[in-house]
């Protein structure tokens, strides 16, 4: 069986950035993500869906994202909060029911979206991984999230989340 309880942390990152692509701290409402993800950093990608509700707070300085992501083997509730920092800086914290772990992120807005990295290594089965999150906006009504990971010391990044979000 596929270990459904792990790896949903990756989805949390994915759900964090739809708001960023359009307007990180003012986007709101329901968003549906379609694409694929790996249920563990070492496993193969598989089709996935996410449904999240985005609620901006604190006059555009703070945004919360809650929802659920599913693969064929199971689903997990997720929760995420993103806070605007000084200048172009962005900080984030996220939790998933599947892992019950909090992952801290930090990064900056770019011309094409947001690039963030985890502030601590992502430990899977005792192995440390670096993680990156890239948000891109291919058109006006959608945004694309990619999450990448690599073992410390590796050169190549593995894509573990590739989701495109649209408002239904």
């Amino acid at each position: 069986m596929i270990p459904a309880r792990i790896a949903f942390a990756a989805l949390l990152v994915a759900t964090a950035h739809p708001a960023a692509a359009i307007d990180l701290f003012t986007a709101q409402g329901g968003w549906t993500g379609t694409g694929s993800l790996a249920t563990s950093v070492e496993r193969r990608m598989q089709p996935a869906r996410c449904q999240v509700d985005v609620k901006p707070t604190d006059a555009g300085g703070d945004v919360s994202v809650t929802g659920k992501c599913a693969v064929a083997v199971g689903a997990s509730n997720i929760s995420f909060r993103l806070v605007r920092g000084d200048g172009r800086a962005v900080r984030g914290a996220m939790w998933s029911e599947a892992t019950d772990e909090i992952l801290q992120l930090a990064g900056a807005r770019t011309e094409t979206g947001v690039d963030m990295t985890a502030t601590e290594p992502w430990v899977v089965d005792g192995v440390d991984y670096e993680t990156r999150v890239i948000v891109r906006e291919p058109d006006a009504g959608s945004f694309k999230i990619q999450q990448l990971a690599r073992m410390e010391g590796e050169k190549a990044w593995r894509v573990i989340v590739d989701m495109t979000y649209r408002q239904p």
Partner: peptide, 17 residues
């Protein structure tokens, strides 16, 4: 995938598991 977003569905068990 779609079925798991329906309210009340707790889990799924299929050959894809």
């Amino acid at each position: 995938l779609e079925a798991q977003f329906i309210d009340g569905v707790r889990a799924v068990w299929s050959p894809l598991s």
